[in-house]
Design a protein around this nucleic acid. Structure first.
Lengths: 347, 347
DNA sequence: CATAGAAATGCAAACGTTTGCCTAATCTAA
DNA sequence: TTAGATTAGGCAAACGTTTGCATTTCTATG
C-alpha cells in the first residue's frame, strides 16, 4: 500500500541502497544525489516501513513501559501520568516509541512483557514499580534483557539499573521537620511493606526518631492499602491509642488526603490537632485543604532519567548498570504547625 | 539471536511453511505433525518474530492510543488510567499491543501519530480526547486510517466511530436533581468550550433549567482551565454576584474538589451553603469531604468499547462507522442538600 | 597518458515470516 | 483396477529494508 524505497529509487534514478543511505544520511552519498533523492521522497510521500527496518536491524525503536496491575487503584495515582510524561519526552527526542503493558493480574502482566520481549517488539523495558520477588523483574534479569527500574530493586541491586530518590534521607529530613516543630509522638502510615519505597521511608523515619532520642513505637506504624475501609480502621486504631500521635509521616500524598478526611470524621483537624507530611508532591497536594507539606520527589525526572538510561543501555550493551539518584526537595505548605498542647481551634 | 522458524522446522523434520501453518493452526496439517512441531517449538523455546510477521502481513497487532498533551494537567485526571484500563483489558484479550503517544505540544502529538501510522507501527488508533479542529483527527480522517474517538467528534460525526455517554441527558438529569432539591439559582462550571463534552453538558444543563422555567443566566456560567489561580478568580466572581448560585453543576470531579476548597476559603461550605454535583465518579469522589454526588460515566467501559470497536474496524475494513453510547448512572452522595434559606451551619 | 587511489553508487543477500501453488501419497468410487 | 479427488506437506516468492562488497567514475600524480 505505502510507497516503497524501490519506487523512490526509480523516481530518483538511483538504486534502492542509495535511497537507504540517504535516509541514514550516509556521508558516502554526494550532496547532489541526496538532494535529488530527498525530493523524490517528498514528492511520493515516502515513509520508511519500520517493520522491515526492524527485521533487518533486529531492533525496533521502541521501549516497553510496564505499569503495575491495573486492578490496583494505585494506578490512578498522578504519579504515573507524570512519570510517563518524563519518559515520553525523552523517548520522543530520541525517536523511540512507547509500548504500554498492563494487566489485571501479575500473570497477565508477565505475559504481556514476554510477548514484548520474545516477539522482538521492544529493545528495552522500563519497570514502573518494584515489588519483592517480582516475576517480571526475574524474567527480564535472567533473559539479560535491557531494563531499568523506577524505584529500587529488592535484590541484585548492583546489577540492575535503577533510578530512585534517596528515600531514606528524604524521609529522615521530613520527619526531622516534624520533630523541629515540637512533635514527639510521630506516626507513620505507608503502603505495603513489599515495596522498596515503603521500607526506605520507614528507615528514614526511624533514623530521625532515634537520632532525636524519641522512642520508636511499633503501634505508631500502620500499613494500609488505602482501601477506604481498611484505611479508616487503621486511622481509627491509631487515634484510639492512649497517647495518639500528634504528627504523621505519610508515604503518599493521596493517602494524606484520605487520612485528612478520616481524621475529620473523628473530629480531628489538620494541622490544628495533628500535623502531617507526606511524599510525591502530586499536583493535587497544592489544592487540598490544607495544602500539603510534602517532599517533591521530581517524578518527571525519575521518568526522564530512566528513559535516558535505558536507551544508553540499549545502544551500548556493555554500558554498566547504573544507580541514578534524583534529588528531592521539601515543599513547605500548610499541613503542619508548631505543636502546642491545646485543644482544636475548630472542635 | 532468537530461535527461528527454520530451526524449528529442521528439528521437527518439516518445512518452515509447515511450522508456520502449525502456528496458525491450519487444518491442512495433520494432528500428528502439529504435535511434533509444537514439541520442537517448546524445546527450542521458539517465539515468532512479530516484525517479520508484520512485514509480510502488513499488519502489526498493535493499536495506538493518543493522549492529550502531556503538558496539560488534565492528563493527571484519573480518567486516563481508568480508560486505559478498559482499553488494555480488551486489547490483551484480543492479543493486541498498545502503543502510547503523547507530546508536550499539539505538533509533537501529531508527529507521533504520523510516525505510528506511516511507519506501519499500528493497525488503528484510539483518540482519548476530541477537540475542535483537531489536526490529529483530521489527519487520521483524510488518511482513511481506522480510528475511534472516546468522546464525540465535533465534525463528521456520522463517519467517525466514537464511543461516548449521552452527556446531554446526563447533565439534564443531574441538574434536575438539584432543581428537585429546591435550588433555583444554579451555576455551571466547566472546561474549555472547544471540548465536545463541555458543550453537551451545558446543553443538558440549560435544557433542565428551561424545562423547569428557570432563567438561564450567562453570568452563572464559568469556563476555567482549573489552573489554580484562574479557577479561584472565576469562583470568586461567581459568588460576588448579587444573587450568587446555591447549586453548581461542575463538569469534572477534580474541578469539584478545587471548587470546594476555594469556596471554603470564602467561608462557604458544601453542602450547607452550596450544593454541588459533578461528573465522572473518579475514585477520589468517594473519599473527598464531602463525598461527591456525581454521575458515573463508566470510564472503564468507554475504553473497553472503544477498543472493541476499533478492532472490529481493523479486521473488517467495511465495518460501518459506529456510535456507541455507554450508559451513565447518578451516584448520590453528600455534596447536595435541600435548599433552605438559612445561614451556614458552620459559618 | 596511464594508472592508483579515492569517491560515489550499485548489486544482491539477508532478516524471519506467510502463502499461493505444486507435488506426492493416499483414498474413493465406478 | 484405475481415474479422479482428496489430503498432507513442500517450494519458493514476497514483504521492505539494510549493508558488505563489487563496480564504476573521477581526480590527481608520476
Amino acid at each position: 500500500m505505502g510507497v516503497t524505497i524501490k519506487e523512490v529509487a526509480k523516481a530518483a534514478g538511483v538504486a534502492p541502497s542509495t535511497v537507504s543511505r540517504v535516509i541514514a544520511d550516509n556521508p558516502r552519498i554526494s550532496p547532489a544525489t541526496k538532494k535529488r533523492v530527498r525530493k523524490a521522497m517528498k514528492e511520493l510521500g515516502y515513509h520508511p516501513n519500520v517493520n522491515a527496518r526492524s527485521l533487518v536491524r533486529s531492533s525496533t525503536q521502541a521501549i516497553g513501559v510496564v505499569m503495575p496491575s491495573s486492578a490496583d487503584k494505585a494506578l490512578q495515582n498522578p504519579f504515573f501520568p507524570e512519570v510517563l510524561r518524563g519518559i515520553s519526552t525523552v523517548a520522543h527526542d530520541l525517536e523511540y516509541s512507547l509500548l504500554l503493558s498492563t494487566g489485571e493480574t501479575e500473570e497477565e502482566i508477565l505475559e504481556g512483557v514476554q510477548r514484548m520481549v520474545h516477539g522482538n517488539r521492544v529493545d528495552g523495558v522500563i519497570l514502573l514499580y518494584s515489588r519483592l520477588k517480582d516475576k517480571v523483574m526475574e524474567f527480564l534479569h535472567e533473559q539479560n534483557f535491557p531494563f531499568v527500574i523506577v524505584g529500587k530493586p529488592n535484590e541484585n541491586i548492583d546489577t540492575i539499573s535503577h533510578v530512585d530518590n534517596d528515600n531514606i534521607r528524604a524521609s529522615k529530613e521530613i520527619t526531622e521537620h516534624l520533630i523541629g516543630l515540637g512533635h514527639h509522638r510521630i506516626g507513620f502510615i505507608g503502603g505495603s511493606k513489599d515495596l522498596a519505597v515503603t521500607v526506605d521511608r520507614i528507615t528514614g523515619y526511624e533514623q530521625a526518631l532515634n537520632q532525636a532520642g524519641l522512642p520508636v513505637k511499633k503501634e505508631y506504624r500502620v500499613h494500609t492499602e488505602f482501601l477506604k475501609s481498611g484505611g479508616r480502621k487503621a486511622v481509627h486504631e491509631l487515634f484510639s491509642l492512649e497517647e495518639p500521635p500528634t504528627g504523621l509521616v505519610i508515604s503518599d500524598d493521596l493517602m494524606s488526603i484520605g487520612v485528612i478526611n478520616m481524621l475529620e470524621e473523628f473530629g480531628l483537624y489538620v494541622p490544628e490537632d495533628v500535623s502531617i507530611v507526606s511524599f510525591n508532591n502530586v499536583y493535587m497536594a497544592e489544592v487540598t485543604r490544607p495544602p500539603l507539606t510534602t517532599v517533591d520527589i521530581n517524578i518527571y525526572d525519575l521518568g526522564a532519567q530512566a528513559c535516558k538510561c535505558l536507551v544508553e543501555k540499549i545502544q551500548n550493551k556493555n554500558e554498566p548498570a547504573k544507580r541514578i539518584i534524583v534529588p528531592f526537595e521539601i515543599k513547605h505548605r500548610m499541613s503542619t504547625q508548631q505543636w502546642k498542647r491545646e485543644t482544636s481551634k475548630r472542635a
